[in-house]
Design a protein around this nucleic acid. Structure first.
Length: 881
RNA sequence: GGACUCAUAGCUCAGUUGGUUAGAGCGUCGCCCUCACAUGGCGAAGGCCGUAGGUUCAAGUCCUACUGAGUCCACCA
């Protein structure tokens, strides 16, 4: 027999079972025509990642669903894997190299990539190991990586396919540029944050008349050397006569025209705006419309270039101050106003993003968005909670083209080659060669002097293929056919645009079908002050530390019970999970250490229900109603609700009452059978939430049935749900609670046995008390009970009631009759108040006419109940005299 | 500027499509180390359901406005 200590030894147990599950390959999924598939693809964590609370929550949710569906008989595939995380990973290795005093350019692309792969080999599956510790039941041998050989093939295939359809193009536009990472970013990768800045009012004098000027307002004076116009709104009367005239750009002493463009808001600033087409997306638009010159005044690292004249060599922020200073000296700075505005920041390094003119690859999004939008609009894909639908649709409706090229080295290199050629086919060779595999020669001139595009694609351009590329698309195969589309996707709200929306687009485009039918968006893990948990804030709680101190089950349970919305987590919150695991453990000790025939068949559905006593009927009924509610909650993605149901049932019903009751009838026929049957099924029901403790206990008495994680989920059994039994038992519980309350109130020693005089109004009540006499005696610690149909005088007694049963507990010598009377009077007052309201309602004609009949009936019977109760109380109080 | 979420016990939250006297956990206060569990047991105290209107026979629940907290989106430089 395994050691059964009063403490659940999670350390040994966690380790033992995660090893066992993996060794037995119990989570492997294979095409099985006899079963329905159920697939979830894991949101692939970054290879740079280490497990944080967000991962813990995300993966626990998935694991609950996966384990539940597996037990329900689906062929379950939980596809694991990791994401190469282009910029993030490159940054890590760049920092490593920086310690050696080198940059990636010093060691070269090839060597740098070797270093990156080496890093990935060493650290890349850290998070996978951590997920296993949490009990995640993925099909681990399938673990994929977004830069696996055939996954890379899928990325190239996707690129080529879109290019051939004209949905990928290359061009020079203003994009978000990170001057630190030295790469382009997509719009989503630029995080907007409010910045306290200034609005500078600068005078631009007219050409030939330095005393006349137009004042423009700008937040970024450092870009003014790149100005090629000043724009006003065409409807703005103030400037009507100036349009077409020429100004002299200060500092540069360059002539620039005044143009009229509807983009200008005449209410903002002075109504006149400097136009810098190479440094602002709006200005870029205007520049195109008015055929302005595009002057870029910055190097890629945001240091001003030779176009900036005297400011060359300065960093952009340094240059801003310097420009302002110079303008002040020239008396061209009219005023400075504080101004808060949203500024884009690199989502990887938080550097302020520079709107930068450069040549990049883009995906045309509108054609892809259309079917993706429809899939959600028509309900083929549903969001849980549904409010995210609107967020998604709104993004789809305002979609803009996606800049997918990145000037980094870690990633999928763009599958495009340019003919450097021999010179004589220059024209034809301007057409790039787009191909899944490296071309041997230029199709136009035959030259083999080809050069591949230096850039790689956005990481999300690979992860948007995740639901099918993990199943080896574009190859067709049985797995892909069987497991795609997947069932549900679990993710955080901030990933909706990056990933969810794009996966839907990719699914529709490449597979012609939705990638998943449900999207469950869970809350964000925060600290108790509501701040997002992050390493840099130092407020993060390490899930591994929780696993170490409280166990994986405790981590899982505690997270999920708090997961109704955003989670506000402190370390103490994990105690609830630890305590619950320990409670389950100790309940198992009680049962397993006492059971005589552990191997008998204890299936509760086979038990003859008619002959059962009340506690048995009650616990069986409670189990099956809980089971149905838990199933329904899981199906509706209400995981915290499911956990509360299990917690309340197991602790509040099974342990607090049922186990206490059967302690005294342990050897009676059928008792152990029911206790074990309910316990066994409760373990199954709890397993998806707390896999370790349940599997361990299971193995102690159900080993011959195989592992718990592959058992069948308890079947629903409506016949076992017995409302009457639940009500009767509730009456018993209420009576016992009242007796206990009386004990506490009058400070009666636990050893003192009390007498109870029950007064019943029906033979049913009498039968209830008589058949459950033992329970009352034991749990109420009674010495004797008496059951009457009518009140007989009882001197100096405490009065209690439950359901339609009244009870007097004689407490001569102890009781303060006046105090007890006052207590009862207070009760009567409360009841009368309710009675009054009820009576008033029942006299209301509108209520009688308009309310549903069943409600009226219910209220009527409630009224009589209350009247009787008040009458009883009033009469009983007389007995105290 | 637009959209969204939240506001219920000291704290963290439940509260299904409106329908008994609004619940739980933690914390607090009593009493118990009773032979599964002190990570436990029993009991108690604690709420004008953010404010003001409205709809309804009936509102914590639906509508409007306001206040406070938070999130996302956005090309007013």
């Amino acid at each position: 027999m395994i050691e059964l200590s009063p403490r659940f030894n999670f350390k040994e147990v966690d380790e033992k079972w995660s090893r066992y599950w993996e060794e037995q390959n119990l989570f492997h999924a294979a095409v099985n025509p006899a079963k329905k598939p159920y697939t979830i693809v894991i949101p692939p964590p970054n290879v740079t990642g280490i497990l944080h609370m967000g991962h813990a929550l995300n993966n626990t949710l998935q694991d609950i669903m996966i384990r539940y569906k597996r037990m329900c008989g689906f062929e379950v595939l939980w596809m694991p894997g990791t994401d190469h995380a282009g910029i993030a990973t490159q940054n890590v290795v760049e920092r490593q190299i920086a310690k050696e005093g080198k940059t990636r350019h010093d060691i070269g692309r090839e060597e740098f990539l070797t270093r990156l792969w080496a890093w990935k080999e060493e650290y890349g599956d850290t998070i996978i190991r951590q997920l296993k510790k949490m009990g995640a039941s993925c099909d681990w041998p399938r673990t994929r990586f977004t830069m696996d050989e055939d996954y890379s093939m899928a990325v190239r295939a996707g690129f080529v396919s879109l290019y051939k359809k004209g949905l990928i193009y290359r061009g020079e536009y203003i994009i978000n540029w990170c001057p630190r990472c030295l790469t382009a970013l997509s719009d989503e990768e630029a995080e907007h944050r409010e910045i306290q800045g200034n609005l500078y009012y600068i005078r631009y004098p007219f050409q030939g008349n330095a005393r006349e000027y137009i004042t423009v307002a700008t937040t970024r004076p450092e870009t003014m050397l790149g100005d090629t116009a000043v724009a006003v709104n065409p409807k703005d009367k103030r400037f009507k006569n100036f349009v077409g005239k020429t100004l002299l750009l200060p500092l540069a002493e360059r002539e620039i025209p005044i143009i009229a463009d509807p983009l200008v808001d005449s209410k903002f600033g002075t109504g006149a705006v400097k136009v810098t087409p190479a440094h602002d997306p709006n200005d870029f638009e205007m520049g195109r419309r008015h055929h302005l010159e595009f002057i870029s005044v910055m190097h890629p690292n945001a240091v001003l270039n030779e176009k900036a004249g005297e400011f060359e060599g300065m960093d952009r922020f340094e240059a801003r101050e310097s420009v302002v200073e110079t303008l002040t000296e020239l008396k061209l700075l009219e005023k400075v106003e504080p101004h808060t505005h949203a500024v884009g920041h690199c989502y990887r390094c938080h550097t302020v993003v520079e709107p930068y003119l450069s040549r990049q690859w883009f995906v045309k999004m509108k054609p892809l968005a259309k079917p993706a939008r429809e899939a959600v609009k028509t309900g083929k894909i549903k969001f849980y909670p549904p409010r995210w639908t609107k967020v998604y649709l709104n993004w789809m409706d305002n979609i803009r083209d996606w800049c997918i090229s990145r000037q980094i080295w870690w990633g999928h290199r763009i599958p495009v080659w340019y003919c450097v050629g021999d010179g004589h086919c220059q024209l034809a060779c301007k057409e790039p060669i787009v191909s899944e595999t490296p071309p041997k020669a230029c199709p136009h001139c035959g030259s083999s002097n080809l050069k591949q595009d230096e850039d790689v694609v956005d990481t999300w351009f690979s992860s948007w293929l995740w639901p099918f590329a993990t199943l080896h698309w574009p190859e067709t195969n049985k797995d892909l056919e069987y497991f795609y589309p997947t069932a549900s996707l679990f993710t955080a709200p901030e990933i909706i645009f990056f990933w969810v929306a794009r996966m839907i687009m990719a699914g529709m485009e490449f597979m012609g079908d939705i990638p998943f039918s449900d999207v469950y968006i869970h809350g964000t893990v925060r600290d108790t002050k509501g701040r997002k948990m992050s390493k840099s804030l130092g407020n993060a709680i390490d899930p591994l530390e929780i696993i170490h101190e409280y166990g994986a089950d405790a981590l899982r349970f505690s997270l999920i019970i708090n997961s109704g919305q955003d989670l506000f987590i402190s370390k103490e919150k994990f105690e609830i999970g630890r305590n619950f695991a320990n409670k389950i453990w100790n309940a198992s000790r009680l049962i397993l250490l006492r059971v005589d025939r552990p191997n008998a068949d204890f299936a509760i559905e086979k038990i003859n229900r008619k002959e059962l006593d009340l506690p048995s009927r009650w616990i069986i009924s409670r189990f099956f109603s809980t089971r149905d509610k838990v199933s329904s909650a899981i199906e509706r993605y209400r995981f915290s609700e499911a956990e509360s149901l299990i917690y309340d049932f197991f602790w509040g019903n099974f342990c607090d009452w049922y186990l206490e009751i059967i302690k005294d009838s342990w050897h009676e026929a059928g008792v152990q059978q029911i206790a074990l049957g309910v316990f066994e099924n409760t373990l199954k029901m709890t397993h998806p939430f707390m896999p370790f403790v349940t599997e361990e206990i299971w193995s102690q008495f159900r080993k011959e049935k195989g592992a718990l994680c592959v058992q069948a989920w308890p079947a629903s059994n409506k016949k076992c749900i017995n409302k009457k039994a639940e009500e009767d038992m509730q009456t018993m519980i209420d009576l016992i609670a009242s007796i206990r309350h009386t004990r506490t109130q009058w400070s009666i020693a636990p050893s003192e046995r009390l007498r109870c005089h029950f007064v019943v109004r029906s033979p049913e009540d009498r039968a209830l008390l008589e058949t459950n006499r033992g329970i009352l005696m034991n749990l109420g610690r009674l010495g004797d009970i008496r059951i009457d149909e009518k009140w007989t005088p009882v001197k100096d007694a405490a009065l209690i009631h439950a359901g339609s049963i009244q009870c007097a507990i004689p407490l001569a010598e102890i009781i303060d009759v006046e105090k007890e009377k006052k207590r009862i009077w207070n009760q009567i007052k409360d009841q009368e108040k309710a009675l009054e309201g009820l009576a008033r309602r029942l006299q209301n004609k509108d209520f009688l006419r308009k309310a549903p009949q069943e409600i009226v009936e219910k209220e009527k019977s409630r009224l009589t109940d209350l009247e009787v109760k008040v009458g009883e109380l009033k009469r009983s109080i007389g007995r105290l005299e």
